[in-house]
């Protein structure tokens, strides 16, 4: 799963709304989600598939129903999109401190 998949999944308002519902109401059967959106199930299923491919939801069959729940871990990379650069600079600043500590003051 690439970063791009997560961003593409989040780019759609229906899919963001699905995530909001799952966040606030917990696990939901697909029919209840479809009712919320007044959307035909095949259309909603396509959105759910994109979310699942991006690793943002998990699907659990219970009897004849499928339940979806939020899997927030991939959102980390969205929340921390500048994180790698910040970590890079923090490490470099620590190295700078060491270099300075080893230099004469002039």
């Amino acid at each position: 799963m690439s970063e791009g998949d997560v961003f593409a999944a989040l780019a759609n308002p229906t899919r963001r709304e699905v995530l909001r519902l799952l966040l606030e109401r917990g696990e939901q059967p697909v029919q209840r989600l479809a009712d919320h959106f007044e959307m035909r199930r095949p259309s909603l299923s396509e959105h759910l598939r994109v979310l699942k491919d991006a690793g943002l939801v998990t699907e659990q069959p219970v009897g004849r129903q499928r339940f979806y729940s939020l899997r927030p871990e991939p959102l980390r990379q969205v929340a921390d999109w500048l994180g790698p650069y910040e970590q890079f600079w923090r490490a470099r600043l620590a190295d700078l401190r060491e270099v300075l500590d080893g230099l004469p003051d002039d």
Binding site: L82, Y85, E86, W89, R90, L93, L96, R97, V99, L100, D101, L103, D105, D106
Partner: peptide, 20 residues
């Protein structure tokens, strides 16, 4: 959101930091 800003105190005079 488009910038990273960090700061750090270094126990060395500015001229020396500038050199590094």
């Amino acid at each position: 959101s488009t910038a990273i800003a960090l700061d750090q105190f270094l126990p060395h005079p500015p001229a020396k930091v500038w050199r590094a």
